[in-house]
Design a binder for these strands. Structure first.
Lengths: 221, 221
DNA sequence: GTCTATATACCGATAGAC
DNA sequence: GTCTATCGGTATATAGAC
């Protein structure tokens, strides 16, 4: 025991491959035979080590979100102001999503099925992330930097945008082929791009601002 | 012919039920037997009228996005300024998503699978919506009302947030049960709520503005 | 712990009677 | 146009030898 959990560990390979297959085919579309073959283990061994399909899926979800949250925690340790902390969250989630291509699809599929098969362990981790963001928003508001916004709406807007932006690359590519020529920078977005543009957008949107010397008319409605 | 396409039309019932089943179970998880039974048609009749599973799925996607786009077009006809037009898009998409509970899950699942099975017809409609939003952003920038932002990022941020916000209700409910008590207004969000909060956020984020004078320090914790 | 072989069930699609 | 019956393929899961 205390064996290094490297690629030589069958369970590590299985979870790795399973994450990939579940992400691209969904739970119902994933094939145990496929996962076993690609992980170079016998199918019976897969059942022996991880259990049935549901258990495998739950393990994949837990591992995926844990990895992302660990990154966020580490990055958040150094951040101070509310603006900075929010920016760190956006850039770290974007980086984690880009680094692990399975993250966004897995979350999107769970979102689509109403999160019925999300284990409680995973829900607790999601709740922790929400609490963190809510605290940041409250801090920023107390400091007079942020407007008063609904934390739930804001948190889901942030996470939703990052995840959709990350997972949207293939569809953007198809849309570009229809919209027309090789429009510059239409498709390929690095995590840094996504983080920069989006945290700008959201931070501008949150910031308390002087009603702008009412040029002429501000609102239309 | 020229028969009214009401519930008495088997094809209408089939597409209706299929949208629901594909939305909640995904393509691989959907069962033809299930769809046929719930649409009260014989399975062989389903194949006779709509074709195989892929054709049925494509028809569902097309019908779903067409219905949403028709609403947007109608609502957009009356809007003038860039701000107003963007607000109309946000509120109409939110309303359409809330009204048709299959819309968000179907889009999320396609997003997760990279849109491989989206028919070209549907891609063209998505491209048209993108073009509309891009024009609004360009108009607003020309009028000195919006900052210069990337239209692709912005469009996907907007659509992603609305869709995630709409589809996120069940997961919010699960998170609430973990985060704690019946926090007011944590879960149930009307389309109007979503549209109002989010279009505020995005419009503030886009607006050209004078920054607020920094108060003091930022941190409480 | 590892693999082969198989139980068991289901699902998409169609043939063919009426 | 409508239905029954069924083919053929494939999926998860396990039994049992080694």
């Amino acid at each position: 025991m205390a064996r290094a959990r490297t690629d030589s560990d069958p369970r590590v390979r299985i979870l790795d491959v399973a994450a990939q297959v579940f992400a691209s085919s969904g739970f119902a579309g994933a094939r145990i035979d496929d996962i076993a073959e690609r992980a170079r283990v016998n199918k019976a061994m897969l059942y022996y080590h991880v259990g049935d399909k549901q258990a495998l899926y739950a393990a994949v979800l837990l591992q995926t979100i844990d990895h992302a949250l660990a990154r966020i925690d580490a990055a958040l340790a150094a951040a101070r102001s509310a603006e900075e902390r929010l920016r760190v969250i956006v850039s770290t989630v974007a980086a984690a999503a880009q680094e692990n291509p399975n993250f966004a699809p897995l979350m999107l599929r769970e979102l689509a099925s109403g999160g019925q098969s999300i284990p409680d362990q995973v829900v607790r981790r999601m709740a922790r992330l929400f609490r963190t963001v809510a605290e940041i928003l409250a801090d920023g508001e107390r400091a007079g930097r942020f407007r008063n916004v609904d934390p739930v709406m804001t948190h889901m807007s942030i996470m939703g945008s990052i995840i959709v932006l990350t997972a949207g690359a293939p569809i953007r590519r198809r849309i570009r082929d229809v919209v027309g020529g090789p429009r510059a920078s239409f498709v390929d977005r690095s995590a840094a791009d996504i983080a920069a543009h989006f945290s700008d957008l959201i931070l501008e949107g949150l910031q308390k601002r002087v009603p702008a010397p009412a040029r002429r008319r501000t609102r239309t409605k």
